[in-house]
């Protein structure tokens, strides 16, 4: 692919196969004022990988995810999406707005609070960006959107406004909205944390089906059992640094660091 991928240093993690690299983060730092949230984190996800970030609150896992599509501006470090490096100025802010927009269009983000647009129906939410930004023909976008709504089990709700849906339905619609962009990779930021317990299952089922069809995903979650089942690689963050990482069975079955052992005990 690109030179950046070919020249990858050895310390970057990821399952060692011949697949191309979808997301690569190198030595990422992020500060909010004097408070340093990320202190040099490197991760990598190859095409088809499911990489899950776990850790306590304040460990920096959500910030890391939000840096990947530049909802937060990294203080320093490199980010490569599909081998393409995001060009930044000296202070870390992206220098090319168009490039950021294009890269964001290739990454489907799912938020903890769903963030469906409240003034648009479910269907309008799905076709908004394809029609008004990517300039796809409307009937084509609507056909795709209906297919995706059917897939997440919301075919009957296409004309409802988000506020009239349950949390689980809203999150499934938000996943469908992200899928409408035919993204190269999906980013999930604690997708079930805002849901009532009885609604978590229906959302996890949708995410699992996406993992099963071989989508690249970066997932932040507190659902440890689910993470163990779907992930190819787990990263445990503590206080802005990677404390431990590896395949799920290794990480959950035989954790090495004392902090990870303590963390796993506290969440189980």
């Amino acid at each position: 692919m690109s030179i950046a991928t070919a020249a990858a240093p050895g310390n970057v993690t990821g399952s060692v196969t011949g697949k191309a690299e979808a997301i690569r983060v190198e030595n990422l730092h992020k500060s909010f004022g004097p408070h340093e949230v990320l202190k040099g984190v490197s991760i990598s996800a190859k095409e088809g990988d499911v990489v899950t970030l776990i850790g306590g609150s304040g460990s920096g896992k959500s910030t890391l995810l939000r840096c990947v599509n530049f909802l937060e501006t990294p203080s320093s470090g490199r980010i490569l999406i599909g081998g393409e490096e995001v060009r930044c100025r000296g202070d870390g802010t992206p220098s090319d707005r168009r490039q950021i927009e294009r890269i964001r269009q290739s990454l489907g983000m799912v938020f903890q609070q769903f963030n469906l647009w409240t003034h648009k129906t479910v269907l309008e939410n799905l076709i908004e960006v394809p029609v008004h930004v990517l300039k796809k023909p409307k009937d084509e976008a609507v056909a795709t959107a209906r297919k995706l709504l059917d897939r997440v089990g919301l075919a009957a709700k296409e004309n409802a406004y988000p506020a009239f849906l349950s949390g689980g339905q809203q999150q499934r619609a938000a996943i469908a909205r992200a899928l409408c962009m035919e993204p190269r990779a999906m980013l999930f930021d604690e997708p079930t944390s805002a849901l009532d317990p009885e609604l978590v299952g229906e959302v996890l089922a949708v995410i699992r089906s996406l993992a099963d069809e071989g989508r690249t995903m970066l997932l932040v979650t507190h659902e440890m059992k689910f993470a163990r089942e779907v992930s190819d690689h787990i990263v445990y963050l503590y206080n802005g640094l990677i404390e431990e990482e590896g395949p799920p069975d290794q990480l959950f079955g035989a954790p090495q660091s004392a902090r990870l052992k303590q963390f796993l005990k506290s969440v189980s």
Binding site: L71, E101, R102, R104, A174
Partner: peptide, 8 residues
């Protein structure tokens, strides 16, 4: 944020 995240 949702709009920005989709590259609007």
């Amino acid at each position: 944020e949702a709009a920005k995240a989709m590259g609007m």
